[in-house]
Structures are given as structure tokens and as C-alpha cells.
């Protein structure tokens, strides 16, 4: 048994652990296992996405073009940089530089909130243009953000598809398929945003704790664990961005 005597009586050590090392290993492993659960949690949605995208490739390409790619790209930058500042927070905590730790944590929080604000405006835009699935969903009135032309269901952007029948029910079919894209878009980005909000809450808690000087060279697991969580949320977005925003861009670019 590793018993680092100097850490045996640390206030943060729970009674049933031998020493801080054992406690740290346990929490670290637990966090990774939890992230494994999270992968499968998002995995269900990714599976639905894969199935429907392979079933309705054209509708997905058209629908994807209705998203604001610049906002998506900007948010990707914001989130990646926030991951970097989070990593720097972990480094500062490990080096016991409390001042820098607080600064990096606040930066991370600010970037996270920036991401969420952009997301809010994107959602609002979708609400205004009837792109939220449900009774009021209506794609026919939607304008292509680049050309300004009205997108008419499956007629736009599917030049190379093999479906050539333009029956009366066709645009209704396209409407349903496009609606499924938006269902998945809202479910996936919504779940992601929900994780971001939890992450922001955790960051606030970390900022308060580190201002109180709770973290030291020996004990900084909370910063590391929230860091892992934050990076995981970043990874989810790294996949969401190309999957949702970048399909079939070359048809309209």
C-alpha cells in the first residue's frame, strides 16, 4: 500500500481511503468511466443520426445548408480555445499558481458563455424561420442564407441524386425528412448545450473554491476532473460541427 505519510491527514482525504494518491486514482478512474457513459449517452443520438443520414442523404444536405455555418465555425473556435484555457487552468492548479488559475477559469467560463449566447441566437433564428420540428415546422419559406433563393424542398441541391420522380407527395416526403434532420439537430445540440450549462455551473464552483484557496499541489483533483468533463464536451462539438453544419456545402458554395 502506498502511504505517503505527508498526505495522510489532509482535510480533503475521506476516511475510507488510505491516502490522497488512492483517492485521486479512484476519482480519476471514476471520471473516465463516467465519460464512457456519456459517450454511450450521446451515442444513441449519433446512431439515430447515422441511420437517418444514410437513409435521407439529400434531405440532410439541403437542411444542413439552412444552418448558419459561420456561427457554427465561430463557435468551434470559441470552444477549442476554451478547452485550451481549461487545460491551462489544470496546469496552473498543478503548479499551485492560484492567481493564474482563477484567471484561466474565468476565461474558460467567459468563452463557454460566449458559445451559449451564439447558440441562443442560432436557436432564435430557427424558431423565427419555422425550423423547429412540430406543428409549425415549415421549410418551404426558408431562404438559402447564401443565395437568398427560396429552397423548395428536395428540388434544391440534389442535382446528382437518382430520385427523379417529382410527384405531388414528393415535397411532403422531403419536408418530413428535413424535419428529422432538425429534430436531430435540436436534440444533439440541445443535449450538448445542456452539458455546457452544467459545465459552466461547475466552473463557477471552481472559481469560488480556488479563490478560497482550496487547491494545492497535492490536492487539485476537482480542477482536473472538471477539465476532463469540459474537454469531453468539446470533443462532442468537434464531431457535431462537421456532421450538422458541413454536409453538402459544395452544392451551394
Amino acid at each position: 500500500m502506498h502511504s505517503s505519510e505527508h498526505s495522510a491527514h489532509h482535510p480533503a482525504l475521506a476516511h475510507h481511503f488510505q491516502d490522497l494518491d488512492q483517492q485521486k486514482d479512484a476519482t480519476w478512474l471514476a471520471m473516465w468511466v463516467f465519460l464512457g457513459t456519456e459517450i454511450m449517452f450521446f451515442g444513441g443520438l449519433f446512431l439515430a443520426y447515422v441511420i437517418y443520414r444514410s437513409s435521407y442523404p439529400d434531405a440532410f444536405a439541403i437542411a444542413s445548408n439552412a444552418l448558419n455555418v459561420n456561427m457554427g465555425l465561430g463557435n468551434t473556435f470559441v470552444l477549442i480555445i476554451s478547452s485550451f484555457t481549461m487545460a491551462m487552468s489544470v496546469y496552473s492548479a498543478q503548479m499551485a499558481q492560484t492567481g493564474r488559475l482563477v484567471v484561466f477559469l474565468i476565461l474558460t467560463l467567459v468563452l463557454g458563455c460566449t458559445f451559449l449566447s451564439v447558440k441562443y441566437f442560432e436557436y432564435k433564428d430557427k424558431f423565427d424561420s419555422h425550423l423547429v420540428p412540430g406543428r409549425h415546422f415549415d421549410f418551404a419559406h426558408h431562404h438559402d442564407p447564401k443565395t437568398g433563393a427560396i429552397l423548395e424542398g428536395a428540388h434544391g441541391g440534389s442535382a446528382n441524386t437518382e430520385s427523379t420522380s417529382h410527384e405531388a407527395g414528393h415535397s411532403e416526403k422531403a419536408r418530413r425528412e428535413i424535419q428529422i434532420f432538425f429534430s436531430l439537430y435540436f436534440a444533439m445540440t440541445g443535449l450538448h448545450a445542456f452539458h455546457m450549462i452544467i459545465g459552466a455551473g461547475l466552473l463557477i464552483w471552481l472559481i469560488v473554491s480556488s479563490m478560497k484557496g482550496r487547491f494545492s499541489k497535492e490536492y487539485n483533483s476537482p480542477v482536473e476532473l472538471v477539465g476532463l468533463y469540459w474537454h469531453f464536451v468539446d470533443i462532442v462539438w468537434i464531431f457535431l460541427f462537421p456532421l450538422l453544419y458541413l454536409i453538402g456545402r459544395h452544392h451551394h458554395g
Binding site: 444513441g44 443520438l45 439515430a48 412540430g134 424535419q179 429534430s183
Partner: peptide, 22 residues
């Protein structure tokens, strides 16, 4: 396994309430 049923039930509930069509 359990997270998959969780997200599935979530989708089913959304389907029932909001008619998202999945």
C-alpha cells in the same frame, strides 16, 4: 448499456410530446 436506454427513452418522450418524428 444504461445510457443508451436513457437517451432512447428521452427520444421517445420527445417524440410523444413534441412529435419530432424520429
Amino acid at each position: 448499456g444504461t445510457p443508451v436506454i436513457a437517451v432512447t427513452l428521452m427520444m421517445a418522450a420527445l417524440e410523444k410530446v413534441l412529435r419530432i418524428g424520429i
